[in-house]
């Protein structure tokens, strides 16, 4: 049972949040993880999510927005079901990161931070994701895919389209 009446989150997530705010020496420490988990469930951090999280943590909504806008993984607009994040930072760039990005743009028909009309994929160019030695690399939602080639990307996209990819949760 959630401590917040009419929670906008699923009962499981609400219960998780109830717990999360209690484990730290300071309630507010739960903020960044909560925002991520809220995004995972809702697809983005909505105004309603901001309001409920502010209430749970006992801080102002403005404070939540200040923090929310700082972190680049958090977004306030929906993305696709599968958010494709292509790294183009130095190690990936040297091994074809931009080719992969271009390939994704072409295949998905979208640009940076855009979502395909069917809502299945969205695309994002990201900074180094910590897969430099296996470059070029990308993440689809939280899953890493490395040593990419355009052909490998095609296979991956097909897998996701066929529902074999993992959801965020």
């Amino acid at each position: 049972m959630s401590t917040v009446a009419n929670s906008i989150f699923s009962p499981e997530l609400a219960a998780r949040f109830d717990h999360l705010v209690t484990i730290y020496p300071l309630r507010r420490s739960a903020l960044v993880p909560m925002l991520l988990y809220a995004q995972d469930e809702l697809g983005y951090v909505s105004d309603a999510a901001v309001a409920e999280i502010a209430e749970r943590i006992e801080i102002l909504e403005l404070d939540v927005r200040n923090v929310l806008s700082y972190y680049s993984m958090l977004r306030t607009k929906p993305a696709g079901k599968y958010n494709v994040q292509v790294c183009t930072n130095i190690s990936c760039m040297l091994r074809g990161g931009y080719e992969i990005l271009d390939h994704c743009k072409k295949t998905l028909g979208v640009g940076h931070k855009e979502t395909a009309p069917d809502g299945v994929f969205s695309l994002e160019e990201v900074e180094c994701i910590g897969a430099c030695c296996w470059a070029p690399a990308m993440q689809i939602n939280y899953d890493f895919h490395d040593d990419l080639t355009p052909e490998k990307v095609d296979v991956l996209f097909q897998m996701y389209r066929d529902g074999q990819g993992k959801d965020v949760k």
């Binding site: 102002l60 200040n66 806008s69």
Partner: peptide, 19 residues
Amino acid sequence: FALGIQNRGSSSVIAPNVP
């Protein structure tokens, strides 16, 4: 606490509490 700092880097901006 009606004013905050939002975004980061060169996009940083002073933001009021009613977006």
